[in-house]
Design a protein around this nucleic acid. Structure first.
Length: 474
RNA sequence: GGCGGGGUAGCCAAGUGGUAAGGUCGCGGUCUGCAAAACCGCUAUUCGCGGGUUCGAUUCCCGCCCCCGCCUCCA
């Protein structure tokens, strides 16, 4: 099946054709965090979706050149720095660091570049772009000294969001004192300095000020990926106005189609509601870790639902993630044991399976249908487990399954980390328990099992020997 | 009001014009000293509601209801 994605621009599933088919390198721009506070798990749902996208493109033989911006100057960061009474850069630094820690915890592949809006390379580029837009009549400086984009001069404005500009209504979310604009939909390219900004300002041909939010993405995207990029992603809430503005600015400057495929991720809900600090359902990655869950468990929970469907985050869902991963872990452990038994005779080899091994990746070709892909994984697990129960899976077959897993795990990245060493205390208790069992002292044996359990380990008596595992562990 | 996305078992969630993947939870069974893991069986006569097209619709069309989001700086 051909690789296809749902393009927000056309609202249709489209076959993916990179801009440059020969080069096999895909330019991907993904809107990153605004570092004014700790990013929440809803933000990370979008980043995990982008991670899945990149990894699957790579599985399909493409090379991704991915850029994720860091917005380190805007109203919220300035306000935060002022309230904390520290310089802007110092204020944002802590959240940048936290962001990168969370990225690692969730096993999200790092983008190739993380440009920051305040980097002079990009502020220069923003000023250059704004100048070009003014020269083309697409932007103007208003009486308040700020520079605005003139949306009436850009006929395509509204195409991405499918908005009729005459119907734009103010939701009252933005202050209403912007009488200086020609059209209510005109958005700021350059925001003139005011006292609230303190020492946060850059010089420009239009006086001191700072970039508008949208222009930074246009500047960084075109600077690092060129005038035209293959895929641009973000959350659905970015469609309007942010991505609409990016199109207007970028195409207004370059005159070329800015993005070939727009992919947008649906929101994460918590207990069926939008996540909000006021509702007390606002979680960061460390919040989830503090509840005893691991990064890979959260990764699984955020990954398992198709990106265009709203995902409801619940603790029950986290439990489900843990159990499902445990099932994968057990399966891999069994396969590895059999793969090592070179000379053991099996009654018959049973590598045959009604599940085609390519079903997993073919599902991902279909607009990243991860739920269907995981369905195939679990069906495969059940079938190979059955074969192993019946002693019908030989070492070669086990190895083949492990190779398959290795391949799909380049996309999933859900394997448990290397086995944690069994603590000597646990090993000692297990040994004592074996002695008790040999003497058929079941009471003592069960008591020792409880003690082992209290230490976070589970003991299982198999035919060969008792096995110790740590459930729910990284 | 405009524009999107969604409504499938207790929960999460695929899917197709031909009679419902998978995960999780629960129950019963095999195995086990007992467990655990694994496997087997059971758990949606039905896919928000009402019409229509069709031999046949959960899947296509029309209308309606509900949930979520966006409508100027939230992923």
């Amino acid at each position: 099946m051909a690789l296809r994605f749902f393009n927000t621009y056309s609202r249709e599933l489209e076959e993916f054709e990179p801009r440059d088919p020969a080069a096999r390198t895909i330019g991907i721009y993904t809107c990153g965090p605004t570092v004014y506070s700790h990013a929440h798990i809803g933000n990370f749902r979008a980043y995990i979706f982008e991670d899945l996208l990149q990894r699957h493109l790579e599985l399909r033989g493409y090379k991704a050149h991915r850029v994720m911006n860091i917005t380190d100057v805007d109203d919220k960061t300035i306000r935060g720095a002022r309230e904390a009474k520290v310089p802007l850069a110092r204020f944002t630094e802590q959240f940048k660091q936290a962001f990168f820690e969370d990225v690692e915890t969730l096993r999200i592949k790092r983008a190739d570049e993380f440009p920051a809006a305040t980097d002079q390379r990009y502020t220069d580029r923003m000023i250059e772009m704004i100048g070009a837009l003014i020269a083309r009549g697409l932007a103007y400086q208003a009486d308040d000294k700020s520079v605005y984009f003139r949306i009436n001069k850009f006929p395509n404005y509204g195409k991405l969001a499918h908005f009729d500009l005459s119907q734009l209504q103010s939701t009252g979310r933005v202050k209403h004192d912007e009488y200086d604009k020609e059209h209510i939909g005109d958005f700021a390219l350059w925001k003139a300095w005011d006292e609230e900004d303190g020492d946060v300002k850059w010089d420009s041909p239009w006086g001191p000020g700072r970039p508008g939010w949208h222009i930074e993405c246009s500047a960084m995207a075109t600077a690092l990926l060129g005038d035209q990029i293959d895929i641009h992603c973000g959350g659905v809430d970015n469609i309007f106005p942010h991505h609409e503005a990016e199109i207007a600015q970028s195409e207004g400057v370059t005159g070329k189609k800015f993005v070939r495929y727009w992919l947008h991720c649906a929101h994460l809900l918590v207990d069926g509601q939008k996540m909000a600090k006021s509702l007390g359902n606002f979680y960061t990655v460390p919040d989830v870790l503090a509840k005893g869950y691991t990064g890979r468990e959260l990764r699984y929970a955020l990954l398992r639902v198709h990106y265009r469907v709203p995902l409801n985050f619940t603790w029950e869902g986290m439990h489900e993630a843990r159990e499902s991963l445990g099932r994968i872990d057990e399966w891999l452990t069994r396969l590895r044991e059999i793969a090592q038994e070179e000379n053991v005779q099996r009654s018959t080899s049973n590598a045959q399976s009604p599940i085609e091994k390519s079903d997993f990746e073919n599902s991902l070709d279909d607009d990243l249908n991860i739920s269907a892909a995981l369905g195939f994984l679990f069906e495969s697990i059940r079938e190979t487990n059955r074969a192993m129960d019946e002693n019908k899976l030989d070492a070669a077959s086990a190895k083949a399954w492990l190779d398959w897993w290795k391949r799909i795990n380049t996309v999933l990245d859900l394997e448990a980390d290397v086995e944690i060493m069994i603590p000597t205390e646990v090993a000692q208790l297990a040994k004592e328990r074996e002695n008790a069992r040999r003497e058929k002292n079941w009471e003592r044996s069960d008591e020792l099992r409880d003690q082992i359990s209290a230490l976070g380990w589970e003991v299982r008596d198999t035919k060969d020997r008792p096995k110790l595992t740590r459930r729910g562990a990284e």
